[in-house]
Amino acid sequence: MLVFAVQFAFVAFSVALLLNLWRLFRGPDLPDRILALDTIYINSLALLVLFGIWHGTAFYFEAALLIAMLGFIGTVAAAKFLLRGDIIE
């Protein structure tokens, strides 16, 4: 059962990532692209966690945590840039 579940989740997250990529290229505006990037990092983080389950190691946890933090900071910086035309005021 678990093997099937993890395989299913791999497929689901990969399709999700493809949809996000489509939105990233399609646009039509900059906030849409930032939103797509935001979703991409969250989805790839889930893929990393799944990969950790698949191989039965907990080593991928730190990488996932780092992606979560840096991704959030990236989204905030990009949104800030759109709002003010400047990241650090």
Partner: peptide, 13 residues
């Protein structure tokens, strides 16, 4: 979880 994430991305698209 995978279903919800997929639905979220479908919504984004």
């Amino acid at each position: 979880g995978a279903l919800f994430a997929l639905i979220g991305s479908v919504g984004l698209a």
